[in-house]
């Protein structure tokens, strides 16, 4: 349970905000050192109140503007939105466009790899990558690893909610999901196979 109280104080990195105590926690844009909470951003101080087992804890945050956080990088376990850029025999190359709810700024796209064995949880060796994705598709996936020096982030779609959300047909038209393995073109009604994401609300909309 959180509620915002608006503070007007302007701070810059390195400014001491509050002495740290058991009832205070450093939040975004702050850090704790030698018994004090410091700002790590230039911005405005916000004090949020958080209920924790009958105690009210103050969370100190520094934000640059009213709307939350702006710099994001993909992290392990996070759900990302990605665009498939190319398809190979053993993996698909993707470009990340969104981390959780935050879009990455234009030009700051991260590359990622989706290996064939990470597409589905079952029947891993029978998967034909071309029947799951095609270049241009927008997918939801989970970051499972940073990869080694040669490869970038590794993605996985081995969950029901993860997979293709919007596809591009061979003819170039947009396709929407119809069932677990098929997508249908919005105009022509031509079906193509995909690893479809079962996004709960989207299924209600389609029926």
């Amino acid at each position: 349970m959180t509620s915002d109280s608006h503070a007007v104080k302007i701070v810059i990195p390195g400014d001491v905000l509050y002495p740290s105590s058991e009832l205070r926690r450093p939040g975004k844009g702050t850090y704790e050192l030698h018994g004090s909470i410091y700002s790590s951003l230039a911005g405005f101080v916000f004090v949020k109140e958080e209920k924790q087992r009958e105690r009210t804890i103050e969370v100190i945050e520094v934000r640059r503007s009213e709307v939350g956080h702006d710099h994001v990088v993909p992290y392990i376990g996070g759900v990302v939105t990605a665009r498939v850029t190319s398809i190979g025999q053993r993996f698909a190359k993707c470009a990340l466009i969104c981390v959780e709810e935050t879009p990455l700024p234009g030009g700051a796209e991260f590359g990622a790899l989706l290996r064939r064995e990470d597409i589905q949880a079952t029947d891993k060796d029978k998967i034909d990558l071309a029947r799951c994705f095609s270049p241009g598709d927008v997918i939801l996936a989970r970051v499972i690893s940073f990869g080694d020096n040669q490869t970038s982030f590794l993605l996985s779609t081995a969950e029901d909610e993860l997979g293709v959300v919007s596809a591009v047909a061979e003819s170039g038209e947009r396709m929407l999901p119809v069932d677990w393995v098929n997508m249908q073109g919005v105009k022509t009604g031509v079906k193509e196979p995909r690893k479809v994401a079962r996004v709960p609300k989207m299924n209600q909309l389609i029926g």
Binding site: I12, P13, L41, A42
Partner: peptide, 9 residues
């Protein structure tokens, strides 16, 4: 600081 990159000071 203008870019909003977290720094210790």
């Amino acid at each position: 600081a203008d870019a909003g990159i977290p720094m210790r000071g």
